[in-house]
Simulated assay, not measured.
Amino acid sequence: MTDLSVLIDTREITITPLFRYESIEDINASERAGHLVKKMRQVVEVRFAGSKNYSPVFPVDAMWKRENGKEITFAERWADQYRAFLDGSNQEAAGTPLEMLKNYGISDANLSLCRALRIYSIEALFHLESDALKSLGMAGNALKEMARSYMAARDRGNANVDEVERLKAELAALKASMIVPAKEASPAQIDAAIEASDTEFQAMDDDALKDWIAGKTGAGRPRGNPSHETLVSMARELSNA
């Protein structure tokens, strides 16, 4: 099977830059004019997958690191994205669109949750760990398993030529979903997205919950006649395990 993904460096796949203009006070000009004077500067907003509140902003010409005695700026760190910004093009996140997980069970609520939490690709979801993964709430482990299953299937290379061409076309159509949104979700919007994702268990009927629990544990369906709330509680605990 032809590799359907663009080769990317996954060491930074959970970090997404967004270059933009920011209005700041020109202190010297303000002092000379005797009133507030502002100027525009180019900055990069650095978004971390799974982070609710941390998105630091740096001037594009600020030093990211020093290597072999040479200063490397944030513009140089993400040169392709910076060029897209200068050209006025859309800035796209690296990786494979999350919509490719539709066949693995990802819901619209979970897609919204991932984007609210700055998770823009399957690879970023796959590499989430610790607190970043926990930020997804009850859906976290299930979503990571979807990403793992997708990556494993892709690596096995078990699709035929027709399937490869179909998937290539699907990926091309989904690239628009990889555009990094200019405005991030607010804390309240993130909490609402988490709640919407969690309520999917509430919407499932008892038989669907029992099947889900059986599939998760491998120990068969729950015995007896547990209430709907008990089944929801069991599903939540398994999802968080």
Score class of each variant (00 low, 15 high):
residue 235 A to S: 08
residue 203 A to Q: 10
residue 40 M to E: 15
residue 64 W to N: 11
residue 37 V to W: 01
residue 201 F to N: 03
residue 190 I to A: 01
residue 236 R to C: 07
residue 138 M to V: 12
residue 119 I to L: 09
residue 78 W to C: 01
residue 28 N to C: 09
residue 43 V to Q: 06
residue 220 G to P: 04
residue 65 K to Q: 10
residue 155 D to Y: 07
residue 69 G to Y: 04
residue 194 I to V: 15
residue 63 M to C: 15
residue 84 A to N: 14
residue 64 W to L: 06
residue 175 K to G: 01
residue 54 Y to A: 07
residue 188 A to N: 11
residue 68 N to V: 08
residue 224 G to N: 10
residue 151 M to E: 10
residue 28 N to R: 14
residue 147 A to Y: 02
residue 219 A to T: 04
residue 202 Q to I: 10
residue 14 T to H: 01
residue 102 K to S: 10
residue 176 A to E: 12
residue 20 R to H: 12
residue 113 L to Y: 00
residue 12 E to K: 13
residue 54 Y to Q: 08
residue 30 S to N: 08
residue 78 W to G: 01
residue 39 K to I: 12
residue 151 M to C: 12
residue 55 S to C: 13
residue 10 T to F: 00
residue 37 V to P: 02
residue 201 F to L: 13
residue 129 E to P: 01
residue 68 N to E: 15
residue 8 I to R: 14
residue 109 A to Q: 11
residue 18 L to V: 05
residue 56 P to L: 05
residue 103 N to M: 10
residue 98 L to F: 06
residue 33 A to C: 12
residue 71 E to R: 09
residue 16 T to E: 06
residue 229 E to N: 14
residue 78 W to F: 12
residue 13 I to M: 07
residue 175 K to I: 04
residue 94 A to Q: 12
residue 64 W to A: 13
residue 89 S to P: 00
residue 125 L to D: 01
residue 78 W to I: 04
residue 204 M to V: 04
residue 49 A to V: 06
residue 138 M to E: 09
residue 153 A to M: 07
residue 125 L to Q: 02
residue 147 A to P: 04
residue 219 A to S: 10
residue 3 D to I: 07
residue 191 D to N: 14
residue 32 R to E: 15
residue 109 A to I: 00
residue 163 E to C: 00
residue 38 K to F: 15
residue 197 S to V: 06
residue 101 L to E: 03
residue 226 P to E: 08
residue 217 T to M: 06
residue 137 G to L: 08
residue 163 E to V: 07
residue 31 E to V: 11
residue 150 Y to P: 00
residue 41 R to S: 11
residue 56 P to F: 05
residue 43 V to D: 06
residue 40 M to V: 14
residue 108 D to H: 06
residue 156 R to K: 12
residue 80 D to C: 00
residue 183 K to G: 00
residue 74 F to I: 04
residue 140 G to E: 03
residue 89 S to C: 08
residue 231 L to P: 01
residue 17 P to K: 03
residue 68 N to H: 13
residue 99 E to K: 12
residue 45 E to K: 13
residue 51 S to W: 06
residue 55 S to I: 07
residue 157 G to M: 10
residue 191 D to R: 10
residue 200 E to I: 02
residue 211 D to N: 14
residue 111 L to G: 01
residue 61 D to W: 09
residue 62 A to D: 15
residue 173 A to N: 13
residue 37 V to N: 04
residue 96 T to P: 02
residue 82 Y to P: 01
residue 96 T to D: 05
residue 220 G to N: 05
residue 193 A to E: 03
residue 69 G to H: 05
residue 75 A to K: 01
residue 105 G to S: 11
residue 17 P to W: 02
